[in-house]
Design a protein around this nucleic acid. Structure first.
Lengths: 356, 356
DNA sequence: GTGAAAGCGCTAACAA
DNA sequence: TTGTTAGCGCTTTCAC
C-alpha cells in the first residue's frame, strides 16, 4: 500500500467499518441508514448519523458503484466547449443532474471522430448511466458502442433506431419562419443564409427550414447567397468574404448560429457597412453574448435550459425505468425570435452602397 | 441483481474473467497485460490482447480505483463556466489531462460557498487525486476539507500553508505595466480602472498592479475612477454608468477582465462615444472573443494553456511523487499586452465630448 | 430491525 | 513468467 501512512498521524480516511464501530452497529445498518432504508430504527439511525458527522465520513462512490451497478454518472458530449452555447448548456445540464443526485462527465469532441471514440470509451469505463450527445453531428457509427452496452443515449436532432436511444427534436422551423417573416415585413427581399457545415444535421435542418420559410414568404432564394460556414466567428468572417464575389448583395443575412452572425457583424464593420442600416443580421441560439454585441443581435432563441432539461429527462427515464413501455422517446424543444438591434428596414434606395 | 439480464440475449458485459477464459490465462495475466507489466511473455500477451479485442473489453474504472487507490481523476473548479475564459481553460486542462491518462471532473462554484462545498464533497466522494481551484476567490475555508484528506490542490493566486497545496502565481504586473505605459505613450493621462469584485484575490492583485503601474508612469489616480465591477458584461455596463456621475471623465479605461471591457465597449457605443477616439479600452485575459469585438480589443493576455499546464503539472507531481522534497510548489504564469483596435491617442482637445 | 456474509471487478502480494 | 488468492469499501441477500 504505497499511497498513505509513512507519515505519522495521518488520519486514515474513515470507511463504513469505522462508522459502524463508532456507532456500535453493523456495517449493514450504516449502509441502510445512509441509503434511507425505512428498516432502521430511529435509535440506531441517530447513532449512525452522529458517528458519520463526527468522523466526517462519506461513502466511496467507486465501491458503491461497483456493488450496486449504478454509477449515478451521466456523460455529456458537446461539439466544442469553446462555442459559448455549449458551456451554457453544460451548466444547465449539470445543475439539473446534481439536483437529482447525478453527476456529469463532460467531453468535447471537437468534431473529431477519433476524439469522440475516446470520449465514448472513457465514459464507458466510468460506467456512465447515460450519455447526452450534443454534437449535432454525424457520429452515429461510434454511438452503438454505447447502445450495444445498453447505455442509454439521447441525441439532438437525430433519430437512432435503437431502444436505448432517444431524440430531442429541435423545432427550428418556428423561429426561422419568424425571422424570415420579420425581415420580409421590414421590406427585405434579398436575404442570404449563412449555413453551418453540412456534416451537421442541425445545419442542414436549419438550412432547409430557411428555404421553406423563404418560399412561404414568397421570396426567391439566390443560390450564391446560401453559404456554408463553420459555426464560428471566423466562419462568419469567411462567409462574408465569399459574399463579396458576387455583384449583387443581399440586404439581410440569416445565420445558422450566433457565432457566425457575430463574425458577420465584425466583417461588415470592417468593410464600413452599417448594421442594420446597410445590412440586417439575424443569429440563432441567443447566447448570452448576443445581447452585448454591437449592435445587439436579433436572433432565434434556442433555450439551453429546455434542451438540458429534455436531455436529462430522457436519460433519467431510461436509466431508472429501463423496461418502461410508455417511455417517451422523443422530446421537442422550440425556438423563438428575439428582436434586438441588428435588424431594420433596408436603406430606402434598395441596395445603396451594397454593390461590390 | 435488478440491472441486467431479464431480457434474453443481452450480452453480459465482459469482465476480466471473461477475457482470461477466452485467452486461456489467469486473470492476473490479463491484468498485467493491460497494465503493461514487463513480466508477461509475448506469447500470452498476444493472446490476451486478441481476446480483449474480440470481446471489446475494457476494464471497470471503479473496480480499478477501489483496489489500487488511484482514480486517475482530477477535479477542476472554476468560478463561472459562463465566462469564456473558463471553458477555454477547461479545454486546455482536459486535453493535457487526457493526454496523460487522467480524466477531469468539472464544477463551477458560481462564487457560492455552498455550491463550492458541494463540489468539493462530490470530488472527494469520487476520490479525485487532485483539484485545481481556479476560482480566484476567497474560499480557502472549505479547501482544507481537501488537504486534510491528503488531496493535493493547486490554487490560482493564493498561497495556502499546507504541504498538499501549490500555487500558481500570475504575473499581472508585466502586462498591466505594459498596458499603462502603452496608454501613457499614446498621450493618455486620465486613466480609469474597472476593478473586479474585491472578494477575489485576483481582482485585488490586478488593482494593486494598476496603481503601481500608474505611479511608475508618473500618472495620478483619480479615486472615483477606480470602480468595482463584476467580472461580467453587465459589470462593465454598470461600471460605465457609475463613471457618468462624475464631471470629469477619463480618456482611457483599463479593465480587470475582458468581459468588463466588452461591457464598456457596449456602454460607450450606446452613449454615442467612439472607441478608441473618445475612449480607449483595455481588457485582461484575451479570450477568443477579444479579437472579434468592435473594435477588436486591446488586452492583456493571460494564457489559458500556460495556466492549465501549470495546474496539471502541480497536481500530477503531488499525485505521483507525494513525498518528493524537491517538489515545485510555486508556478508562475506571465501576461503580456496585445495591442488591437480599442486604444489610440485621445482626441486632440483633451476631453472633447467627454464631460458629462 | 439487525447482523453476518457473499460478492461487485479488479490489483497486488505471494507462491509456484 | 504465471497463477492463486486476499481484499479495496460498499450493497444486498439471507438468516435471525
Amino acid at each position: 500500500m504505497p499511497r498513505k501512512a509513512d507519515r505519522k498521524t495521518v488520519i486514515k480516511t474513515p470507511d463504513i467499518r469505522t462508522v459502524a464501530a463508532v456507532a456500535k452497529v453493523s456495517i449493514a445498518t450504516v449502509s441502510r441508514t445512509i441509503n434511507g432504508s425505512p428498516l432502521v430504527s430511529e435509535r440506531l439511525s441517530k447513532r449512525v448519523w452522529q458517528a458519520i458527522k463526527q468522523l466526517n465520513y462519506f461513502p466511496n462512490t467507486h465501491a458503491r458503484t461497483l456493488v450496486s451497478g449504478r454509477s449515478r454518472l451521466l456523460g455529456i458530449i458537446v461539439e466544442n466547449i469553446t462555442n459559448p452555447f455549449f458551456p451554457e448548456l453544460i451548466q444547465s445540464f449539470e445543475e439539473i443532474a446534481v439536483a437529482n443526485g447525478y453527476e456529469i462527465l463532460v467531453s468535447s469532441s471537437n468534431s473529431d471522430p477519433e476524439v469522440l471514440t475516446n470520449c465514448v470509451r472513457r465514459m464507458l469505463e466510468r460506467k456512465v448511466e447515460g450519455v447526452a450527445v450534443m454534437t449535432f453531428g454525424e457520429e452515429e457509427p461510434i454511438l452503438d458502442q454505447l447502445t450495444h452496452r445498453n447505455v442509454p443515449i439521447v441525441l439532438a436532432e437525430f433519430k437512432l433506431d435503437d431502444p436505448k436511444a432517444s431524440t430531442i427534436l429541435l423545432d427550428y422551423s418556428t423561429g426561422i419562419h419568424a425571422a424570415v417573416n420579420h425581415l420580409a415585413a421590414l421590406g427585405h427581399t434579398k436575404i442570404a443564409f449563412f449555413a453551418g457545415p453540412h456534416k451537421l444535421h442541425s445545419a442542414i435542418t436549419r438550412e432547409n427550414d430557411f428555404r421553406t420559410a423563404m418560399q412561404a414568404a414568397g421570396l426567391a432564394i439566390e443560390k450564391h447567397w446560401i453559404i456554408e460556414c463553420n459555426h464560428t466567428l471566423k466562419g462568419g468572417v469567411a462567409g462574408y468574404a465569399q459574399l463579396k464575389n458576387f455583384p449583387v448583395r443581399p440586404t439581410a443575412i440569416v445565420c445558422s448560429n450566433d457565432m457566425i452572425a457575430i463574425g458577420v457583424l465584425r466583417a461588415a464593420y470592417m468593410e464600413g457597412l452599417h448594421v442594420p442600416k446597410d445590412l440586417s443580421v439575424i443569429g440563432l441560439d441567443d447566447i448570452d453574448f448576443a445581447e452585448f454585441t454591437l449592435p445587439p443581435l436579433t436572433t432565434i432563441r434556442l433555450s439551453r435550459i429546455d434542451l438540458a432539461r429534455a436531455a436529462f429527462e430522457a436519460l433519467r427515464q431510461q436509466a431508472e425505468d429501463p423496461g418502461d413501455p410508455h417511455m417517451q422517446r422523443e422530446f421537442l424543444v422550440s425556438t423563438s425570435l428575439v428582436v434586438r438591434g441588428s435588424t431594420s428596414t433596408p436603406r430606402p434606395k434598395d441596395s445603396a452602397g451594397l454593390s461590390a
